[in-house]
């Protein structure tokens, strides 16, 4: 198995894949039943790809996302992150990857309700061990970047859905991770607000970030350059997006936080 997987970790051009899953299975035991959320999934993602994961409800999209994000542990199979086998890492290593390499964006935003926008965005920097003044500065810049400079001292319940998701994106960006994982980021937003969020992702992609997005809306998936379709825990299809939206092409090149 290791022979084939090490071959798969590099693509034809010899680039190392930042994410490489080899025969990943995630199984839940419910009493006497075994539920397979993922079955033998093999998948590679290179730097600066823009991937949409699609599929019906219960097909295993979130499970796949959680494993990629080092939040969940597969039942079997090997996961290489930046060429390193994740199963050999300890809690602190995994936390460091989640902290510095990956930025999570959730469907339900998942902001801390008692903290204002600025404190929410500062939180990953706290775990990164950044000193308070630099933390503040960087959090302010991240919020400015998502267009929320005037909402920094607002609590989540004083913000609209779109604003909340932008705070969440600022929080995901503040440690300058190379990979953004977004599980249905527009699922709780109306179309117009959703489009704004998608423009933000587009921009991040153009600046060199790797973006992996879960969605079941074709309109949303159309922004991505590659679409992976999942069904019953298996990859049904995986290929470039033929209908990629062209309207985005001239993106403003603005430096991120």
């Amino acid at each position: 198995m290791s022979g084939s997987s090490s071959a798969q970790r590099e693509n034809a051009a010899g680039e190392i894949q930042v994410i490489h899953l080899a025969n990943i299975t995630r199984m839940y035991v419910m009493g006497s039943e075994r539920i397979y959320a993922l079955r033998e999934v093999t998948l590679g993602i290179r730097r600066n790809e823009y991937v949409a994961i699609m599929g019906p409800s219960g097909s295993g999209k979130s499970t796949l996302m959680n494993i990629i994000g080092c939040l969940d542990t597969p039942s079997s199979g090997d996961y290489y992150f930046n060429g390193e086998l994740v199963s050999t890492m300890n809690d602190a290593d995994l936390a460091a990857i989640r902290n510095r390499q990956i930025g999570f964006v959730f469907q339900t935003f998942n902001l801390l309700p008692r903290s204002d926008a600025l404190r929410n965005v500062e939180l990953p920097l706290v775990y990164a061990g950044v000193g308070s003044s630099e933390r503040r500065e960087r959090a302010i810049r991240a919020l400015e970047h998502v267009g929320l400079a005037d909402r920094m001292s607002h609590k989540p319940n004083e913000l609209s859905g779109g604003q909340r998701q932008r705070v969440a994106i600022a929080r995901a960006l503040v440690t300058r991770p190379s990979i953004i994982l977004a599980d249905e980021p527009t699922g709780n937003l109306d179309t117009k607000t959703g489009d704004e969020i998608m423009r933000l992702f587009e921009e991040l992609w153009r600046q060199g970030n790797t973006i992996i997005l879960v969605t079941h809306e074709e309109d949303v998936a159309r922004h991505a350059a590659r679409i992976i379709r999942v069904r019953d825990g298996r990859i049904e299809s995986d290929g470039p997006n033929e209908h990629r939206l062209a309207s985005m092409e001239p993106a403003p090149a603005k430096g991120i936080a």
Binding site: L71, A95, N99, R100, N110, L123, P124, Y127, A128
Partner: peptide, 16 residues
Amino acid sequence: TKEIGVRKALGATRRS
């Protein structure tokens, strides 16, 4: 519980 999950996703270790 939810907050703990969020904190872990953002890079909190068990220790923190």
